[in-house]
Nucleic acid binder design. Sequence first.
RNA 1: CGGGCCGUCGUAUACCGGUAGUACGCCUGCUUUGGGAGCAGGUAGAACUGGUUCGAUUCCAGUCGGCCCGACCA
Length: 408
Amino acid sequence: MKLSQLFTRTLREAPSDETAANARLLTRGGFVHKVMAGVYVYLPLGVRVLEKINRIIREEMNATGAQELHMSVLQNRATWDATGRWDGAKDVMYQFTDAAGHATGLGWTHEEPLTELARHHISSYKDLPKAVYQIQVKFRNEPRAKSGILRGREFLMKDLYSFHADEESLNGYYEQVAQAYLKIFSRIGLPALRTTASGGLFSKFSDEFQVLADVGEDTIHHTEDHSFVCNADVYESLKESGGLPDGELRQSRAIEVGNIFKLGTRFSEALGLTFTDRDGASRPVIMASYGIGPGRAMGTVVELNHDERGIIWPASVAPFGVHLVDLARDGRAERLYDELTESGTDVLWDDREDASAGEKFADADLIGCPVRLTVGKKTEEGKVEFQPRSGGDAEVIATADAVQRLSR
RNA sequence: CGGGCCGUCGUAUACCGGUAGUACGCCUGCUUUGGGAGCAGGUAGAACUGGUUCGAUUCCAGUCGGCCCGACCA
């Protein structure tokens, strides 16, 4: 990608009304654009990051045997009346009447429509277990959007739903997904803590995945080594029942990047999702749901990985692997760009004629690709300056070595 | 939804009851190129409505909008 062709440009200063680091840096770098409170456009650079996050999620979800589908955003009232949640959700769900007079809503979660859908495809114990997921936009009329892209009214969610004939199957898959979640966050570069939370519907507890950060809106209690972590909802009841480990627990703010939840038969019973068991009896399907917010994960990565000059993306989710600063504009950078591209490395080539060296370096720091390569008049023929964004000394190496190092 | 702060060119800011200025951006020309270049010229702005006033961008009220704290967040 040539920087001269990029749709967006960077801003020298952040909008004065944004205080969250993720909003300030993502806006300055041209990753996102705020339309209104809690509603952000993802610009080309932002989409590249999101797509890398989503690819990781898909790989790990597919590895559990789950299959991707794509639900509708428009939902009808009848589905929601089956569980009584049409009225119950009226504060959070965008509801309206369409031109034909039908009560319609925008999806803020998909348990009801997904359960209804599953009735068409699950009717026997032989059809179980099954798991499907989507990466979809969700709408929630949040009373207070906040913290840049961390809490919006329109946001992406990966939601996975699993269907089981018995609890043993449910518990086994639930644990499998918990492990997949830890793997996903690790690959994204987020040190997520599996956190005991209130169970709500079916089981005593659910699991949240929390990343320590001061901008987080959750409070968690944990041992120093994080071998035990619980959220504020269950802290008191664990304390009363002696469920806490010995010793002093720390209290920290954290961002919830994922949540997994056993639903039991709440939705299957309400919507008539049953299966016929071996003995011929009709039983409700046992369900669980599992969510990750890819946009929130992206914002969390920025919160954890930046300095005063800009973002420092982990290689796994960086918009480009390499930011190639071309100060010489004599064809050498272009040859390097071609070589790197052919070897499978994503390169953002700053080929601008009218930008100063300082501006190019500043933009490279701001956009935050993990490696900056510089070709300038000072650079010897056949050499290139290699500078990791995360810090450390710049080194001048042969272009061939740079290509080899980056293609690994 | 309660509380607080705030709305001035695209962005960041200044000033002022009477003419809206600066920097960056953007456009033109020339000169520049290893840490946000220089010169010259140009472009573009007071959220909306009402009130006070001879006169309001400025003061007052309402509306709309943004941020922060809290409540809320299957």
